[in-house]
Amino acid sequence: MNAAAINVAPLLFRYVLRVGDLSLVLGQRLGEWVGHAPALEEDLGLANVALDLIGQARLLLSYAGELEGRDRGEDELAFLREQGEYLNPTLVEQPNGDFGQTIVRQVLIDAYQLELYERLTNSADERLAAIAAKAVKETRYHLRYSSDWLVRLGDGTPQSRARVQSALERLWPYTLELFEEDDLDREMADSGIAPRLAEVQAAWSRRIDGALAEATLERPRDRPYAWFGKRGEHSEHLGYILAEMQYLQRAYPGARW
C-alpha cells in the first residue's frame, strides 16, 4: 500500500482509542480502592492517580470522537461501546488483588505510560503531542508514587516481599503485549505519530530493571502469552468492569449531573 494514499484519520482514531482506553480502564480499576485502601492517606493517593487517568481518557476519547467524525463524544465512547471495541492492553483490566498487586501493576504500567507519553510529546500529530505534554507530568508523579511503594514492599518484610514477587510473576506475562508491534503501531510510527515500540520497550525495560533492583525483586522470565486486549480480545475481567462502568448510561441513556 502506498503510504500517501492512506487516509490516516481512521487509523489515528484507533490509535488514540488504544492510548485513551488504557487510562480509562485503569482509572476505573483504581477507583475500586476508594473506601478500601489500607490507610486514609493511600485512599486519597490512589484516587488522585485514578482521577488523573480519567482526565487523560477524557481528552483522548474526545479527540478520538472528533477523528471518527460520527458525532460520538467522550461519553458515548466511554460508556456505550461493546467489550470488543475497547483497545486497552489486557494488563490494566487485571483485578486489583491486594495492595501489593495493585502497586506492581501500577509500576509496570506507569513506566510504560511515561516512556510512551515522553515520546508522544514529539508526535507529528499536534493534538496528541499536547495531550501527552499534560499527561507526562501526571505520569511522572504516578511512577514516583508506585515505585516508592514497590521499594517499601519489596525491600520490606518477608511477607510483603513474597506478595509483591508473586504479583510480579502473575502480571509479568501481560506486559509483553504492550510491546508487540502490529500493523496499526507500525503505521503510526511510519507517519511519525507514535514512537517505535521496540524503542519504548528498551527504555521501559531499563526503568523496570532499576526499580526491581532497588526493591530487591527478581525480574520474571518472559513467557508466551495469549492476550491481545489492544486488538479488542480481552480477558474475562473487562466485562465486569464495563458492566459496572456502563450501567448508569445504559439504564438512563443521556443521563447527566
Binding site: A39, G45, D148
Partner: peptide, 20 residues
C-alpha cells in the same frame, strides 16, 4: 497532619491531601 511510614511518603501524602 497525616500518617506516613517515612518522610518521603509524608510528602506524597501531603501533596495528595493538602494540595489537591
Amino acid at each position: 497532619s497525616l500518617h506516613a511510614s517515612d518522610a518521603r511518603m509524608a510528602i506524597d501524602h501531603a501533596r495528595d491531601l493538602y494540595t489537591r
